[in-house]
């Protein structure tokens, strides 16, 4: 954990987990990684320190969130769609 830079969180709709995908885009808006959300709506990326955009893709909606990641800490992002 001390060496890692984690971005994690959940995707929910009206408080309930939504299954979908979360993309990680770098500071230039370029695709870096993408994961499906877990059964409980969770996602996690191992990234590098800096500013990132999370893009949640779920049926009927696309939502972006900006996040600043730091080494040794987990940036928690709750995305409501």
């Amino acid at each position: 954990m001390a060496k890692e830079t984690i971005i994690q969180g959940s995707v929910t709709r009206d408080g309930e987990p939504v299954s979908g995908y979360v993309r990680l885009l770098d500071g230039g808006g370029e695709f870096t990684a993408e994961v499906p959300t877990s059964a409980t709506g969770q996602f996690r990326f191992f990234a590098a320190p800096g500013t990132w955009t999370l893009r949640a893709l779920v049926p009927g909606a696309t939502v972006d969130r900006t996040v600043v990641a730091q080494q040794g800490a987990a940036a928690e992002v709750a995305i409501a769609v």
Partner: peptide, 8 residues
């Protein structure tokens, strides 16, 4: 698969 899922 993703597009199929996003289309529900």
């Amino acid at each position: 698969r993703k597009k199929w899922e996003l289309d529900a």
